[in-house]
């Protein structure tokens, strides 16, 4: 434990560089492949434009249709809670904004820490609920494989270690902060090679869907 400062500096330095590099390389490779392969050419005459419906679908698919909500209300609600919580905490916590500003040169106003704190707690609860549901629901359990648990774990760890560091539950603090940064780096490295890529591809898939339907003159 006496090297906690060294550990923190390692996670903030060398390791951060590597994680960012692997993330950028992996994610760009995936995206370039997806876009370059594109879709099969459609030779049928277009009945309507594809851009409008495509973009609209990117947005509208965020909301479950009444049928889906009725069938799996729990998934929709809990999914919403922790996804939104994760995004808010990631982008609106002041120390995170400082980090983004230093790497990308962009900044925006943040939320007060107690609000972020409450949202993280809610996010953690949502993630635990999601796991319990996955483990107890027979169909879900049957469908889940290692990757599902892995992605859950790396996501949960990021929020949990952040919560622990904020509340200084591990001493000394450099160790707590280092563990949080390390867990984020694991998340970044795992991201491009698992279903976590959905944070990018979900929107691409929605766009394609909406665009195809739009071209056919069908409401998506």
């Amino acid at each position: 434990m006496s090297d906690s400062m060294e550990f923190l500096l390692w996670t903030k330095g060398t390791l951060f560089n590597w994680a960012l590099a692997i993330f950028a390389l992996g994610m760009l490779a995936r995206l370039v492949e997806i876009f370059w392969l594109g879709r099969a050419p459609n030779y049928a005459e277009a009945r309507a434009g594809q851009w409008g419906p495509g973009l609209r679908t990117v947005f509208t698919r965020s909301f479950a249709d009444p049928g889906t909500f009725k069938r799996s209300g729990f998934d929709v609600l809990v999914g919403w809670v922790w996804h939104l919580g994760f995004i808010i905490v990631l982008f609106l916590f002041i120390p995170h904004i400082e980090l983004i500003k230093s790497v990308f040169g962009m900044a925006w106003p943040g939320l007060p820490n107690p609000v972020i704190d409450a949202i993280s707690a809610l996010t953690l609860a949502g993630l635990v609920a999601a796991l319990v549901h996955r483990l107890t629901h027979p169909v879900k359990k049957h469908l889940s494989d290692f990757e599902d648990y892995l992605t859950w774990a790396v996501t949960f760890l990021v929020v949990l270690t952040g919560y622990v560091a904020y509340h200084r539950l591990i001493n000394p603090y450099p160790l707590a902060l280092g563990i949080h940064i390390l867990s984020v780096e694991i998340f970044l490295v795992v991201l491009p090679f698992t279903k976590l890529t959905h944070m990018f591809t979900a929107f691409i898939a929605r766009w394609y869907n909406g665009a195809i339907f739009g071209r056919k003159g069908v409401q998506s």
Binding site: K12, G13, F16, N17, L20, A24, L25, A29, R30, P95
Partner: peptide, 22 residues
């Protein structure tokens, strides 16, 4: 919370490699 390294170059190289691999 700010990293101690300047990642611009690494990020650029990794992105270029990613584009090539993809």
């Amino acid at each position: 919370s700010v990293p101690t390294v300047d990642s611009t170059q690494t990020l650029g190289l990794a992105a270029a490699a990613g584009v090539v691999i993809g």
